[in-house]
Design a protein around this nucleic acid. Sequence first.
DNA 1: CTGGTTGCAAACACTTTGCATGTCG
DNA 2: CGACATGCAAAGTGTTTGCAACCAG
Lengths: 148, 148
Amino acid sequence: MGIKCCHSPLTEAAAREILEQNGINKTKGKVEILCAISRTNRPLSVSEIHELLERACDLSTVFRTITQFKEKNLIRELNLDEAFARYELIHSAPVSHHHHHVRCRHCGDIQNIEDCDLAVFERAIARLGFTETEHRLEFTGLCAKCGK
Amino acid sequence: MGIKCCHSPLTEAAAREILEQNGINKTKGKVEILCAISRTNRPLSVSEIHELLERACDLSTVFRTITQFKEKNLIRELNLDEAFARYELIHSAPVSHHHHHVRCRHCGDIQNIEDCDLAVFERAIARLGFTETEHRLEFTGLCAKCGK
DNA sequence: CTGGTTGCAAACACTTTGCATGTCG
DNA sequence: CGACATGCAAAGTGTTTGCAACCAG
């Protein structure tokens, strides 16, 4: 319990299978992007992914692929108060693995938090050595009018 | 308890006093921007503020003023998964008035949530008629290394 | 073969900055 | 008067798009 980093790099074969299952063409770029995201245990920005691939494909291709992965719910987009978005794999494993993040305002380091309860959170974060903690909890949904 | 909109428009005099207390020059633009933010009960984007002022001052001035207000902790910056930031007044009243937001993924409507407890949240949001709710809880702070 | 995919360059949206001018205190 | 504030235009980011060449199925 508490804090744990979920780290599960995909083999190329596993990546190909995931793409297959989601009806996505298994091009070199897409396989590599999926592997790259699975290789890190922290959410990546598009340009970080681009650099991890050593620019093997164009930046716009990374953006397009990320968009596609997001639509297929392979990845989750995060907003950690930076000028850009970050993405992490959704481990479709048991149930959609719900967790959150702590990001250091100073060095930008990002760590995962596995529990989902405010009090537990605060304790877990303190245990990590974080100070001057702030949190931001935002909801989205369909309002009464829009929820058809 | 539950949901409530905190709405407290500032008179020009009150706005001037706040600026005074924070050592900010009381120029026409700054007074108007502060009033505009206090007049709405939902967080505003920079260009919404600009339009509310009927372009009485330049967009870059709004950006610069917002930056200054943020530094003085007069306003809070929010990130509601849009391509831009939103800002709302910090009611310095009793203690820093802590609350969150629900935003409709469809129409973009934003409402305030006053309580700060996940379970209460969920119920409150459901009571508002929101469906397909998602939330995002992110922390920032100084990690053990950076927290001097 | 044919539709999806890519690279490239250009376009976008939001935000920041440089500089000359204008205003507050 | 001097410091700060402003308008304007230009530059900077991160992201999106149009198009022709290309590749997977």
